[in-house]
Computed example of a mutant assay.
Amino acid sequence: MAGMSAPTDQGGLRARKKQRTRAALIDAGLDLFLTKGYDATTIDEIAAEVEISSRTFFRYFAGKEDVALAKGDEFDELVLEALSARPAAEPPLPALRHAMLAMIHEAAAGDGVRRFLQVQHLINKTPALLAGNLRRAAGSEERLTTEIAARQGVDQAHDMRPRVLVGMVCAGLRIGLETMCADPRRDLERLVELAEEAIDLATAGIPQRWGDDPHTW
């Protein structure tokens, strides 16, 4: 019986090795972008840092933009998973708010607040990344909207409330992060505090529970 598990073990080892290589490429790429600048960094340089070929690099990423935005992609997935895991009876605003703030805390705690903010600043000051990040954000908002609509049992084609809610929460988060980038403090509690404050300001007019009329809250 022991021998039967070997292929599975090997598959698990390969998956973990691939994940480690992917994480190493992201870290190496971000280090180079922050040190040399995004435009001046080449794919060959990123690959060399991880001691793989440029050809192997393309097994993980389509290009260096994907490396720069990878942390954002991971964050989007975590928020969607966290929202899906919230209790079904929880109203949409607190469900999304809790999911978003919990994942901000987790992401910044894992990478360190300074690193987290450095990546935000890198994206904001690099036109090519800013455009790519807007595309990423739009896709994330679409998936969150679909999840909120499903939780509420409404048709998002005829009910704008899920889209408006998600748009306001995401706008609040973006403003909170921009405010944090200009804040002299670099601690996790301050980051979450500003994100929470901005989200609450952005959604101040949205009630927790919605009525039956799709044209009003």
Results as ranks from 00 to 15, higher is better:
residue 114 R to E: 15
residue 105 H to T: 09
residue 10 Q to D: 12
residue 193 E to P: 11
residue 187 D to W: 05
residue 138 A to T: 10
residue 102 A to E: 14
residue 22 R to D: 01
residue 77 E to S: 14
residue 100 M to N: 01
residue 70 A to L: 03
residue 118 Q to P: 13
residue 165 L to C: 04
residue 86 R to L: 00
residue 199 I to G: 11
residue 212 D to K: 08
residue 159 D to T: 05
residue 66 D to N: 06
residue 109 A to Y: 10
residue 183 D to V: 04
residue 214 P to D: 11
residue 142 E to D: 12
residue 118 Q to D: 15
residue 67 V to T: 06
residue 9 D to K: 09
residue 33 F to V: 06
residue 23 A to G: 10
residue 85 A to F: 03
residue 162 P to W: 01
residue 194 L to E: 10
residue 204 A to Y: 09
residue 71 K to F: 03
residue 210 W to C: 05
residue 148 I to S: 07
residue 15 A to R: 15
residue 65 E to I: 03
residue 207 P to K: 05
residue 213 D to F: 10
residue 172 G to E: 02
residue 76 D to M: 02
residue 163 R to V: 03
residue 170 C to Y: 01
residue 91 P to H: 05
residue 120 Q to N: 12
residue 212 D to Y: 02
residue 176 G to F: 00
residue 172 G to R: 02
residue 175 I to V: 13
residue 139 G to D: 09
residue 178 E to W: 00
residue 91 P to E: 06
residue 152 Q to W: 12
residue 42 T to L: 04
residue 143 R to E: 11
residue 61 F to L: 06
residue 132 G to V: 00
residue 100 M to A: 09
residue 35 T to P: 08
residue 50 V to N: 11
residue 181 C to L: 13
residue 200 D to M: 11
residue 27 D to M: 12
residue 93 L to G: 10
residue 108 A to F: 04
residue 7 P to W: 06
residue 151 R to N: 07
residue 141 E to P: 00
residue 116 F to G: 07
residue 22 R to I: 00
residue 92 P to F: 09
residue 23 A to S: 15
residue 109 A to S: 15
residue 169 V to Y: 03
residue 155 D to T: 10
residue 206 I to A: 04
residue 148 I to R: 00
residue 213 D to C: 10
residue 141 E to K: 12
residue 139 G to N: 12
residue 76 D to V: 08
residue 5 S to R: 08
residue 119 V to H: 14
residue 189 E to H: 13
residue 97 R to N: 10
residue 62 A to M: 04
residue 54 S to W: 01
residue 184 P to A: 08
residue 57 F to D: 03
residue 20 R to W: 11
residue 183 D to I: 05
